[in-house]
Design a protein around this nucleic acid. Structure first.
Lengths: 244, 244
DNA sequence: CGACTCCTTGAAGCGGCTCAAACATGGTGG
DNA sequence: CCACCATGTTTGAGCCGCTTCAAGGAGTCG
């Protein structure tokens, strides 16, 4: 068993597609150029034209857009197994920024290598495209949450989505997971003020639903959280095209 | 000049890519199966697995998600030249619904035909992928707006984005455009109540910025609107990969 | 130890919501 | 032809969810 078989990306893709040895080898190759980045130092700045994408293998990242008035909106968080800047390398200059929330490990993927991989293993291309599509579905769900759910439901939904994503790459379970986010991150992601995030977390804790403390999320009442957050994991779980 | 050269999709793509005769012919072929749908009758329902995509050639559509509590969030509006259900045909069951806001004309595109077209004219595939990427950038911008802009700025931004998109397919200008949306649609899109939408529109009108009345948007102060909505069209205008 | 980051809580204000009602328009059927 | 209804717009009144401002506490790092 080569090391890459335990990589988060392989775990994620394998949950939906049985990868052949050849495909695993290609993925292995893509993981060659390992790099490290420090927490808090932006990877890509808004508007910058970028040549490389990354496969995140350890640590957390957020992608966000800055407003002229200084506020920011976090669009998504990336966890191990996720791509960074996939679209910008293929199609256009990046329209948002990436900030590592922790020190991270990522494999740099050059445009040429990626296109080669897609040419030689089209099934892998479809698998990656499927992952990108899933990411987009998450952004849409995020949009719905901010537009139509109140603060409590938003938080519940968000924590459940994270639990589900992390479990897929073996970094947590229904009972809980480690999470390096601060309440400021939660605020910027959920479109709330940090103060209100604190109050909402307290309320969820006091109602025995979930506790977020010292970098760890403990889910006490999974059912209750699902109900409160109107969480329907369909948008995360749908089968890719390859298993049909 | 064949009729398809005036199709909104061709207009849109041509703004960023010079299409060859062969590529125009392929696009022409994709426009063969013309169909009509009536306003208010959903095209695709949430969760439904769909086999075809559509190229919208006339009329307006919105894509939305319904919440268990009955509220809905409109994710995006589609105007002539836009694809409907592109992702769902390639990758997964649709995770939102489509409702025609007016009677519409659309060309049905079968999965097979689309894949054939992509295989034979890869430049066209990239162009379509570019359009899809632009759509996604719009969703992200929408997310930012709902999360971090107040009602007035949201409305200003939204009306400007529409102006820009419509101008690209020859359906309006900086001065204004026809728009079949009701205040309820605006509310569901912007995450507001219909009542508040009305008040915001009144305010914009009284401040001499823009008037939305009788299905027509008249932009009186383009500069002022841009400033109020913090509208930066970079996410719409960026060059595709083919013109580099 | 001081400086910094993050969490926590209180108090007060406001942006946007809900409820309610009136009006205008266009289509429909008796 | 008019009575009626459905759909959309407009406006008022009151309220609540969330924000802003303010300040204290707790942990950590140089």
């Amino acid at each position: 068993m080569t090391p890459v078989k335990n990589s988060p990306l392989v775990r994620k893709l394998s949950a939906f597609v049985a990868l052949s040895e050849a495909e695993l080898a290609v993925l292995d190759h893509l993981h060659q150029r390992r790099r490290t980045f420090l927490a808090g130092r932006d990877l890509v700045h808004q508007g910058q034209s970028e040549q490389a994408a990354y496969i995140l293998s350890a640590g957390w990242v957020c992608s966000y857009k800055l407003q002229p008035d200084g506020t920011r909106q976090i669009v998504d968080f990336q966890i191990p197994g996720d791509f960074l800047g996939l679209r910008s390398v293929l199609l256009r200059t990046s329209d948002h920024s990436f900030e590592p929330l922790t020190d991270i490990q990522a494999a740099e993927v050059l445009k040429g290598d990626l296109l080669d991989a897609f040419t030689h293993t089209p099934r892998l291309a479809m698998a990656v495209l499927w992952a990108a599509s899933r990411d987009e579905a998450m952004v849409v769900e995020h949009l719905v949450g901010i537009g139509r759910r109140n603060a409590e439901a938003r938080m519940a939904h968000f924590l459940l989505e994270l639990a589900s994503r992390l479990a897929l790459v073996g970094m947590g379970s229904r009972e809980g997971y480690d999470c390096p986010l601060t309440q400021y991150h939660l605020a910027d992601a959920l479109g709330l003020s940090a103060v209100h995030v604190n109050r909402v977390l307290r309320q969820l804790r006091e109602n025995g639903l979930v506790t977020f403390r010292d970098g760890h999320v403990s889910i006490h009442d999974h059912e209750g959280l699902i109900k409160l957050g109107e969480f329907d994991p369909a948008y995360l779980d749908q089968d890719g095209p390859l298993v049909r």
